[in-house]
């Protein structure tokens, strides 16, 4: 069996203001696997995901693609994780979509011409070439999500991390996104409140409660066990 792309052991974290957010997380993600993260508001999902990109540093053992996360490996690890943030407006911080997509390659040492070429290529595969010179502020939520995803995919990450990707998307937008995600070959970790969406993009789910993983198994089984459904 191959090494898991994400291997987390005993991860704990308390925010500087004293809020305990993670109280001992053990979690493995195999290459190419997709896992949904379910759990109540405030149960620690976002905090956990931020750890995977080294944006927050807690206690415990974290390996991404076999590399232990330390100060020295931070850049390598961030290159393996593609993080799609909950709020696309945080993520699309450059003046135009094209410049935004090119930001990652440009800041990891690629020369400007090559960065632009890759940016063009990726927005073409995602079908948003027509948005290249648009300002992110004027895009629809679905277009923003696609642009944000382009900025992440252009880095060729091994794992994709999504924090509540369906926020602000209408039902057709959610369908689009689900299809798009299923077609991507990378391993995926998706925090969501939507069991139906989770089932479409992942087979396995983990359930967060109070900073711990309280359940792990097939999406349906986890949702049933924790009564995670609308009435």
């Amino acid at each position: 069996m191959s090494l898991p792309v994400i291997d987390v052991r005993g991860l704990q974290y308390t925010y500087p203001d004293g809020t305990p957010a993670l109280r001992g997380i053990d979690f493995q993600l195999a290459a190419g696997e997709s896992v949904a993260i379910l759990g109540a508001n405030g149960s620690g999902k976002t905090t956990f995901l931020l750890h995977l990109a080294g944006l927050i540093r807690g206690d415990g053992d974290l390996r991404i693609g076999g590399i232990p996360l330390t100060d020295d490996t931070l850049t390598d690890v961030r290159g393996k994780i593609g993080y799609v943030f909950q709020d696309s407006d945080d993520q699309l911080f450059m003046p135009t979509v094209l410049e935004d997509v090119a930001f990652g390659p440009l800041h990891t040492g690629m020369d400007p011409a090559e960065s632009l070429r890759r940016a063009h290529e990726i927005i073409a595969t995602l079908g948003i070439s027509h948005l290249a010179n648009r300002a992110p502020y004027h895009l629809s939520a679905g277009e923003k999500k696609r642009a944000a995803l382009a900025g992440v995919l252009v880095m060729k990450p091994e794992v994709l991390v999504f924090d509540e990707p369906t926020t602000f998307l209408d039902p057709p937008g959610q369908n689009d996104l689900a299809r798009l995600l299923s077609a991507l070959p990378q391993a995926k970790l998706i925090a969501t409140h939507d069991v139906y969406f989770a089932r479409r993009v992942a087979k396995r789910a983990v359930f967060f409660a109070d900073g711990r993983i309280a359940g792990d198994g097939p999406v349906e089984a986890v949702a049933d066990r924790f009564h995670w459904r609308l009435d």
Binding site: L55, D87, D90, F93, L106, P112
Partner: peptide
């Protein structure tokens, strides 16, 4: 909070403190 989110997004995409501009 917005600035912190943006900063996170920049770091996650390989930013290390120095800006490079597209020519």
């Amino acid at each position: 909070a917005r600035a912190e989110g943006v900063h996170h997004a920049m770091l996650a995409r390989g930013f290390r403190g120095d800006f490079v501009s597209l020519h």
